[in-house]
Design a protein around this nucleic acid. Structure first.
Lengths: 329, 329
DNA sequence: CTTGTTGCAAATGATTTGCAACCCG
DNA sequence: CGGGTTGCAAATCATTTGCAACAAG
């Protein structure tokens, strides 16, 4: 697993300065270091205060100027949360996300959602508008404040690691759903050879689920804050079902109250393999596309790794099966 | 059709002032009048300038103070578009919406989307967060600027009327889809009495489509600006299909390249009627729920009117059929 | 030794506040 | 007439700029 260079941004900043004909100075590096060492959404003044603790000689103007540079080179990201202050959050290797702000206690929840992004993209396409960046901000009252609990001093936690956690969870949920499908397809299939194919893939999925479970442990291990950080990545199985309609069409999901029985099938080995390939490739594509929205992070690598695995789970002749099972216009 | 009192807001403001123990003054009313007479996203200074044209004696401070009051009572809505200025747009009887800002020419596109709102709500529910308001802002480059066309001086156009236009279009699209379904269901049904029911409803839909077409004409008639304003309300048929899975399941939509044939059915009159009722009630519920998100406007009344009509199109015994055709968990 | 950098002081620009004169209810 | 209101001037507040002394390349 690629270990993240603690202060990779320092080097990045130096390169950026050089490329822009700017000079590397003690103050700039001190401010960068201070910024990197702090988590959350800091105002210029917050950072200025922190910097002064280390060296009272730096001026606030320099902090303004440096933060502007950091934003320009992608190390920092400007954020407006509603209190007329410009705030800064970590930008390098941190997944883009949106903000929910509690107007009572000031708590900020960060989240990302593939579905929301998809819709956003769709709307931009309709206007033939080339989006550069977009922000979603929600203000309201958090559950803690509504129930007059004091929010358990939940300190802001590195988004990147929470993203990794949720990427594994997303892969896990998808894989469980696919396994479920293949198990049920095996049970429903009349053809022995075809059934065998489904069973084999179901077993593959099962093994993979175990591995993913371990990966989840690994991501969370020893990091209490990550383990109990609120959900960052919103992923609903609906997204899978919508991308892979055959799942819904062919499987009897355990329905709340009654439901259609499993459809009967009689797919020979080749047909079964093709169906399997189609499903896994579709899942792979979805994960790859979504991963493309993120900068290189552990979470992204997890998404891409899962996509690769899916592709390998159905390494058979492709396409002809597609139109038969899914005709998406 | 309820004709909108041109300056209904004036009365509203007076009431609000009285209720808050404030005094009604010449300046306040002048500023309100000026604000109401302007369309778009105006900064305090924009309005101050306009007000000064009418009476040079008013001070900018009063404009600040009055706009704050207007925002507090809902007549105006504060908006931040990215150029560090607080801007104001009409708030009373204007549907809440989001903004797309072209960073080259400053053009602002407004839009609303039921799907986006649904997802937003869902995410808030997951955090047990009570949202008060939320903003979506996208910055980028519009098509005009990208192709170096000068944006045809498209002046901002009253959102309320565009909303009405799109509400009709949304109803129309849904009704066409439903008609399509009933026509195809009629063709596929083996039972003569059942077929007859489907045919009857299809004809009802057909008539309704004609009426809606007239309503669309009516909304647009003589209002060039409304007719060619860009899409405001984003509504995709996917939303219908997702809400009414049986549509997709039972109909062969004309697919791009090949596709499954129409499913065969043998529904007697009662079963057919129940299915019809289910579909129309589901559509009605969707429209009612969505309308609930808007303040009283013509667009909202159109949505509610359509919902009512749907309900009347399936006035038969309900529920028992639901679980058989749609098992949404 | 050139050129960007720093930090102070002063400027800016949007918005707010103090306050005496004012006028609505 | 009493209390909110107005508009001016002055105050804030975050942020930017001018500039002389300074330090990186």
């Amino acid at each position: 697993m690629p270990v993240r260079k603690a202060k990779e941004e320092v080097e990045m900043f130096r390169v950026w300065l050089r490329q822009n004909g700017l000079k590397r100075t003690y103050q700039k590096e001190l401010i960068l270091e201070t910024f990197l060492g702090a988590e959350g959404h800091l105002s210029v003044d917050d950072i200025y205060t922190l910097v002064k603790k280390k060296d009272r000689r730096v001026g606030s103007v320099t902090v303004f100027r440096t933060l502007k540079s950091l934003a320009a080179c992608g190390i920092a990201r400007e954020v407006t949360l509603g209190d007329g202050l410009t705030r800064f959050e970590h930008g390098h290797r941190h997944p883009p996300h949106h903000h929910i702000v509690c107007t009572r206690c000031g708590r900020v929840i960060e989240f990302a959602s593939p579905e929301l992004e998809r819709m956003q993209d769709e709307i931009m396409r309709k206007y033939d508008f080339q989006p550069d960046r977009h922000w979603i901000k929600t203000c309201g009252v958090c559950s803690n404040c509504r129930e007059n609990r004091k929010g358990g001093e939940e300190r802001p936690c590195d988004t990147e690691r929470v993203f990794a956690r949720d990427a594994v969870k997303m892969a896990l949920a998808t894989e469980v759903r696919l396994m479920e499908f293949f198990q049920q397809a095996a049970a429903a299939n009349q053809d022995a050879a075809g059934r065998e194919v489904f069973e084999r893939i179901a077993r593959l999925k099962e093994a993979n689920i175990a591995t993913l479970g371990e990966e989840l442990d690994d991501v969370v291990r020893g990091e209490e804050d990550v383990a109990k950080a609120p959900v960052f990545l919103h992923f609903s199985l609906d997204e899978v079902e919508q991308n892979i309609p055959s799942l819904t069409r062919l499987t009897a999901r355990p329905p709340a109250q009654g439901g259609r029985p499993v459809v009967e099938m009689a797919l020979d080995a080749e047909a079964a393999a093709k169906l399997a390939r189609f499903l896994t490739v579709t899942a792979a594509t979805f994960f790859k596309d979504y991963a493309a929205k993120f900068p290189d992070t552990r979470g992204r690598r997890i998404l891409l790794g899962f996509a690769g695995q899916q592709e390998s789970h159905g390494d058979l002749d492709s396409n002809s099966y597609l139109s038969a099972w899914d005709s998406k216009s």
